[in-house]
Amino acid sequence: MTTEPCSPAVLLGRLRECDRLLPRPGTIRSPTLPTVPWAEFCDPAGPWLARCVEEWQERGEFRHRRAGIVLVAFRFGWLACCATVPEYHLGAPLPALDDLRVAITTEGRLSGLRPTGELDESSPQLWWDQLRRAFEPLAEGLHALGGPAPESPEYWGNPVGSIGTVLWRLQRSGLPGDAIATARELRAATGRERLLDIAPERDPWPRRTTCCQWWRKPGSGYCEECVLWNSPNRRPSSAVTR
């Protein structure tokens, strides 16, 4: 945590601002959507994971089969960081991901996360242990569906890279705390530091070193912190938002 302690009321107000800025459990609440246990979602033999891959393939009009697979890892990594990084940065209790449930749309899209509890302690390593244990079965399930090996940076670059994106957005919105210091703390805890480049003099200061694959959609652009920032095909106006 790099934010000075504050009253519970102030902390609640800051978390509500995070809810406004990011797709978080408190803002993606659709009671009509089914929720399933995370382990069930990650089962490659079950109905959810393969359909989620196909939904990305259809939405992106991808010819490249791996794009939809990697984008499922991107979606979960992004939602998981949105649901947990602000809490660590601001000094709130960390959501527990052990009994996580997820909301699924009728099209098969992973719509939102539903943590069911909080941790009693907070540290970068506890944060990463939670996220890592949730991410491992997803990577294994995606591999079973024809994706890269479970330890591939194509998967793990998504939760690690999203650390920087979440904190950059919090900093840009004016929320307190040293966002870059928090990003460095959490990045170090992952043991995969090379997947997130941090340069304070750059805007945006975080940059992924792997690709989410969305640029493959015909007519699409690039994330603001995309590893393809200097691609000869990239245009200054082509940045996309999540």
Rank of each mutant, 00 (worst) to 15 (best):
T209V: 14
R29G: 05
A83N: 05
L22C: 07
S152Q: 02
T209H: 04
P137S: 02
L138Y: 10
R172W: 12
C223W: 13
N230Y: 08
D98Y: 12
E151C: 09
G141F: 13
F76K: 01
W127P: 06
R202A: 13
G77V: 00
G164S: 02
A179G: 02
E40H: 04
I163K: 01
L113G: 08
H64T: 15
L110P: 04
T2I: 12
G219S: 03
E224F: 14
L167M: 10
I28Y: 11
P232K: 09
G146A: 10
F76G: 00
L22D: 02
G26T: 15
W56I: 11
P150M: 00
P124W: 04
G161E: 04
R63G: 09
A189F: 02
W48C: 06
R172Q: 09
Y155P: 03
R65E: 03
R65A: 07
S122N: 06
S123H: 09
L11Y: 12
S231H: 12
G177Q: 08
V166D: 00
D203W: 15
G91T: 00
G147T: 05
R51I: 15
P159S: 09
V53T: 03
L228K: 11
A181F: 09
C223H: 03
C226R: 04
D98K: 14
V70E: 02
D43E: 06
D203H: 12
R234G: 05
V70N: 01
E54T: 15
T27P: 06
D99R: 12
C6H: 10
D178K: 10
A39V: 08
P204I: 15
G60R: 08
W48V: 13
P34R: 11
G221K: 00
A96F: 06
A50Y: 07
D178V: 14
V70M: 01
G60C: 11
M1V: 11
L15A: 10
R14E: 03
T2K: 05
R101V: 15
L119K: 05
Y88G: 06
P23E: 07
L100R: 03
A134S: 14
R207Y: 13
L119V: 00
L33D: 02
S122C: 08
G60Q: 03
R169Y: 13
V85Y: 09
I104R: 00
V240T: 14
A83L: 09
A149E: 08
W168R: 00
Q171V: 13
P95C: 06
H143V: 15
C223R: 07
L97S: 03
A181V: 11
E140F: 14
H64R: 08
I104P: 06
V85R: 07
P206E: 05
A189R: 00
T105G: 00
D120P: 08
V227I: 13
R172P: 11
T106C: 03
E140S: 12
E136Y: 12
R16D: 07
W127G: 02
L126D: 04
G141M: 10
D19R: 10
